[in-house]
């Protein structure tokens, strides 16, 4: 008769975290950067239909890396959550903070109680009336939430890409400036001494939350408009 192995809780959690991290690291990174008139999202994604960045509500957007079916499920849940809340109360009462909380609870519960953690990392961002009022929340597979300022990089090469963004980002950059910075980060060499890649507009998925737009702030940028912005 075989005896069940004892696995310490520390080991169990570490194994799950490693598993989730490995899954996330396989995907391409997403860069989220604040600019003077809103928040921009950029990622390398040749698909026009399978989005990694999407609209949740009037001033709230969602970006994700990891397993598509898992984050797509969370995105749909977020849209339902926001629309139900806005319908029950008022459009003003739908906030990124509450949504980030709901996501954190969900990710955390799955991480500790289910056999497999969700292999996703999310950003929930809300654009405010002023740059100071912008909110960017980063959520990881175990349900931890970080309130980020200015920029976030998540996904496979997050640390390396973050160093590129960190070096050149400052408050008050314009949209073309942050997009060029984000695309430079996404195309940076995978290891020391490698070649910088130039990513064409067709290989990119880019969207913004534009605070100057009246109600729905979310807008996708593609085609000639994106090419113009990238050329500056």
């Amino acid at each position: 008769m075989s005896m069940p192995f004892y696995v310490s809780p520390e080991q169990l959690m570490k194994d799950r975290a490693d598993y989730a991290r490995k899954g996330i690291a396989r995907g391409r990174s997403v860069v989220v950067v604040q600019y003077d008139e809103g928040i921009a999202f950029a990622t390398e994604n040749a698909s026009r239909a399978l989005h990694k960045v999407s609209e949740i509500y009037d001033r709230i957007a969602f970006a994700a890396v990891g397993k598509y079916n898992e984050f797509e499920n969370l995105r749909v849940a977020g849209v339902r959550y926001a629309d139900l809340r806005g319908y029950s109360y008022d459009r003003e009462d739908v906030t990124a903070r509450a949504l980030a909380n709901a996501y954190a609870q969900t990710l955390g519960t799955v991480f500790t109680t289910e056999s497999k953690p969700l292999e996703v990392e999310l950003v929930v961002a809300e654009v405010g009336r002023t740059a100071e009022a912008d909110q960017i929340y980063r959520l990881t597979y175990d349900g931890s939430v970080a309130d980020e300022h200015g920029w976030v990089v998540m996904g496979g090469q997050a640390e390396r890409l973050a160093s590129v963004v960190e070096a050149d980002w400052r408050q008050g950059l314009t949209l073309p400036q942050v997009l060029q910075l984000a695309v430079r980060a996404l195309g940076s060499a995978p290891e020391e001494g490698g070649d910088q890649r130039t990513l064409p507009a067709a290989q990119l998925e880019v969207a913004v939350l534009d605070r100057t737009r009246p109600r729905r702030a979310f807008r996708r940028l593609a085609g000639p408009l994106l090419e113009d912005l990238l050329e500056g």
Binding site: Y81, Q105, G108
Partner: peptide
């Protein structure tokens, strides 16, 4: 929906 903590199954 937050009254129940995590997002309810119907949402997911």
């Amino acid at each position: 929906p937050l009254a129940t903590g995590r997002l309810p199954a119907a949402f997911l």
